[in-house]
Design a protein around this nucleic acid. Sequence first.
DNA 1: GCCAACGTTGGC
DNA 2: GCCAACGTTGGC
Length: 217
Amino acid sequence: MPKPRKRLAGAAGPTGPDNKGPAGKRTKTKNPVGTSATLGNSSPEKTSASKNCGKNLSSYWLMKSEPESRLEKGVDVKFSIEDLKAQPKQTACWDGVRNYQFTNGLCSGQCLHTSLGVLAKARNFLRAMQLGQEAFFYHSNCKEPGIAGLVKVDVQFVRMMKRYITLAELKTHYQAHKTTGGPLKNMALFTRQRLSVQPLTREEFDFILSLEEKEPS
DNA sequence: GCCAACGTTGGC
DNA sequence: GCCAACGTTGGC
């Protein structure tokens, strides 16, 4: 029996995000939504992108990763967006994750995800993700959780957020949107909170992007 | 196939 | 470090 959570709408931590601002380099990322990348998926009739007008298929994602060191079974699970940037080609080896071979053989000893259990749960979404789709890179299990940057799936750094969008801020909007019917009203970060890889609607994605231009609420 | 116990996630 | 939430497991 799930009990209603009592700690919602908590105090927004006063700690400054300490973010470094826009990282200069942008890899050109104008990838049109409609281009079905089809990762070796050669079923002809199933270009998922052409199903309906592209409205409610998920082309956007939020991926959680832990930016602070934490040992899990002897392995440090830390992988921040800065770590991603530091990878060769600013791209993380994601195959190890896909195949659930979460062993020392990972490409640089680091990985985006923390445990096999998490991966199993997110497996369906991992499968649904396609190359080039955009995702927010979310820092979890840390002092100030929030969206740190933008990546492309499988998994390449795109850019830092212009400002760090904290969980607290997202939650404020989520709460408001539940009543107003705004774009974040069903955001999986809150409704399916344990999913480490979660789909975003285009409306959610665009709304969150628009927050970059605004003052933190 | 139900459901309580358990383990993990992750905000606080 | 605490503990709510929630996915998984396993007994029945």
